[in-house]
């Protein structure tokens, strides 16, 4: 994973996901995560850092997006691309999105947090409750009476 970067003398950090897979990540990428930063400051840096709350496939996604995010900093086109990717992910696989979001939250990666939160916000914007339930596979857990009351109260919003 580390070989793609062009910085020369970067330190490599080793991380282990909850399902036991080991990742080697450039320090600059790893330090995007405040969780890892804190762990390294606490001097666990020479060993493999365990990430008990993140599975390998999700961690792949996180690293991929961290890199993309670093690239896009001054590239408007890329920014757009990344935004539309978020929409696709939410449409095709809201479940993976939630896991990604959780992982980002757990790893405390500020830049990705903003990005993934914006994805969901953009996705939700202007959609009716029914459509959101359908797209994100959310169960309607209101009682019929509750629902009628809430709909009546909010119908102006999605009339």
């Amino acid at each position: 994973m580390a070989s793609t970067s062009n910085s020369t003398s970067s330190k490599i950090i080793t991380l282990r996901s909850s399902d036991g897979e080991v990742f080697e990540v450039e320090e600059s990428v790893a330090l995007e995560s405040n969780l890892i930063r804190r762990m390294m400051e606490d001097d666990c840096a020479n060993n493999i850092i365990p990430l008990p709350n993140v599975t390998a496939p999700i961690f792949y996604l996180v690293i991929e997006h961290c890199k993309k995010h670093a690239e896009m900093k001054d590239n408007k086109e890329k920014k757009k691309e990344l935004r539309s990717q978020g929409e696709e992910l939410l449409k095709s696989d809201p479940h993976t999105y939630s896991n990604l979001m959780e992982a980002v939250n757990y790893l405390d990666i500020k830049s990705l947090m903003d990005l993934t939160a914006q994805w969901l916000a953009d996705f939700l914007k202007g959609k009716s409750p029914r459509l959101i339930r359908e797209l994100l596979k959310i169960k309607n857990d209101f009682t019929p009476e509750e629902e009628a009351e809430i709909l009546e109260r909010n119908r102006w919003a999605f009339d």
Binding site: M101, N105, A117, L120, P129, I132, N154
Partner: peptide, 25 residues
């Protein structure tokens, strides 16, 4: 997702969209 996280996402929305959220679940 943690509710604090959701609330911070919702706060990026306009008021009508926020009200749509309220009627979802």
């Amino acid at each position: 997702l943690p509710s604090a996280l959701l609330a911070s996402i919702f706060s990026k929305l306009d008021v009508p969209s926020i009200c749509s959220m309220a009627a979802t679940c």
